[in-house]
Amino acid sequence: MSAQPDRGIDPRGPRFAAGITAVLLLAEVFLALIGARTAATILLAGLAALFAWGAFAGVRRHPFGVVFRRLVRPRLSPPAELEDAAPPTFAQGVGLLVTGVGLVLALVGVPLALELAGAAAFVAAFLNSAFGYCLGCQLYLLLVRAGLIRRAPVAVGP
């Protein structure tokens, strides 16, 4: 009932990965703006594939997560507390949705799709990396409120 994780991940891992993703998304927006549309499309497709990897295989198996565990975490002090892997995994799905829709729209010729999808995904990844803001958590709650995600009522306890 209460969301106590039985096993956790270092919360700095997803934020490290989001930082790399944010930089790559900025590069994608820049390429699209200066007219290097093929390069921007390939980069956005690559990022969408990475989001899919994180969403379906889990953030623990995401390449940037592996980089964090192998190269970064050994140099850091242990985390103050561990976090559940489910929220960042859900956030990867949100990233996949945004970049995937942008990619499809760009491929059918919708103007500004590369720029706007990249910018939207950048804002989410940047806020997550720099401030610890979890857009996926917010969207999940809005889906619950809208009645799109529902489970049987259970008794609440401490």
């Binding site: 209460s2 969301a3 507390e81 976090e83 559940d84 999940y140 609440v156």
Partner: peptide, 28 residues
């Protein structure tokens, strides 16, 4: 809140969470 819920005699901290919530376990 439901059958099992019990409010404190002097005060209650009522937390709203979801499973997909990075800060909920720490807040708990």
């Amino acid at each position: 809140l439901g059958a099992d819920a019990q409010l404190g005699e002097r005060a209650t901290l009522l937390q709203f969470s979801t499973e997909f919530c990075a800060r909920c376990p720490g807040t708990h």
